[in-house]
Amino acid sequence: MRFSLALALFCCLTGAAHAAPTSHDAAPHKAYLSLIIDDLGQNLPRDRRVLALPGPVTAAVMPDTPHAAEFAREAHKAGKIVILHMPMDPATGPFAWHPDLPVDELEKRLNAAFKAVPYTSGINNHMGSRMTSQPQAMAWLMADLQRRHKLFVDSRTSAQTVAAAQAQKIGLASVSRDVFLDDVRTEQAITTQLDTAIKLAHKQGSAVMIGHPYPQTLAVLERELPKLKARGIELIDIKQMIGLRGNKAMAGHGKDGVYR
Rank of each mutant, 00 (worst) to 15 (best):
81 I>D: 09
195 D>H: 08
111 N>S: 13
202 H>E: 02
259 Y>E: 02
78 A>G: 09
66 P>H: 02
59 A>V: 15
159 A>C: 05
28 P>V: 11
171 G>T: 07
96 A>E: 11
17 A>Q: 05
195 D>T: 08
63 P>D: 00
114 F>C: 06
166 Q>E: 15
232 G>D: 01
107 E>P: 04
212 H>E: 10
78 A>E: 07
31 A>M: 06
88 M>H: 02
87 P>C: 07
229 K>T: 08
255 K>S: 13
244 L>P: 04
199 K>V: 12
150 K>Y: 13
141 L>V: 09
65 T>M: 11
169 K>S: 14
253 H>G: 06
216 Q>C: 01
201 A>D: 03
95 F>V: 07
197 A>N: 02
187 E>Q: 10
155 S>F: 03
173 A>T: 14
6 A>T: 11
183 D>C: 00
22 T>V: 06
38 D>Y: 05
241 M>T: 14
217 T>V: 10
227 K>R: 14
199 K>E: 13
35 L>V: 11
234 E>H: 11
141 L>E: 07
121 S>W: 09
220 V>C: 02
86 M>Q: 13
104 D>Q: 15
207 A>D: 04
64 D>N: 15
220 V>P: 12
14 T>Q: 14
240 Q>L: 03
55 G>V: 06
178 D>Y: 03
220 V>L: 04
241 M>R: 06
194 L>Y: 10
23 S>G: 13
250 M>I: 13
111 N>G: 05
224 E>R: 14
26 A>F: 06
241 M>K: 06
255 K>C: 07
101 L>I: 00
171 G>R: 04
226 P>T: 06
8 A>H: 02
120 T>W: 11
176 S>Y: 04
239 K>N: 06
137 A>M: 14
193 Q>T: 00
119 Y>I: 11
125 N>K: 08
59 A>M: 12
223 R>S: 11
41 G>F: 01
50 V>T: 10
232 G>C: 06
205 G>T: 00
9 L>S: 14
243 G>K: 09
32 Y>F: 12
173 A>V: 12
161 T>D: 01
42 Q>C: 10
255 K>I: 14
106 L>S: 05
106 L>I: 09
247 N>D: 12
201 A>I: 08
126 H>F: 00
162 V>Y: 00
89 D>Y: 14
103 V>C: 03
169 K>G: 06
71 F>T: 10
9 L>P: 05
74 E>S: 08
219 A>L: 07
184 V>T: 15
182 D>H: 05
188 Q>P: 01
190 I>K: 05
98 H>A: 15
72 A>V: 04
120 T>A: 10
196 T>I: 11
47 D>K: 03
239 K>D: 03
134 Q>N: 12
205 G>I: 00
48 R>H: 14
155 S>D: 01
212 H>V: 01
13 L>N: 01
48 R>L: 12
182 D>F: 08
148 R>C: 03
101 L>W: 02
110 L>W: 01
154 D>S: 08
178 D>E: 07
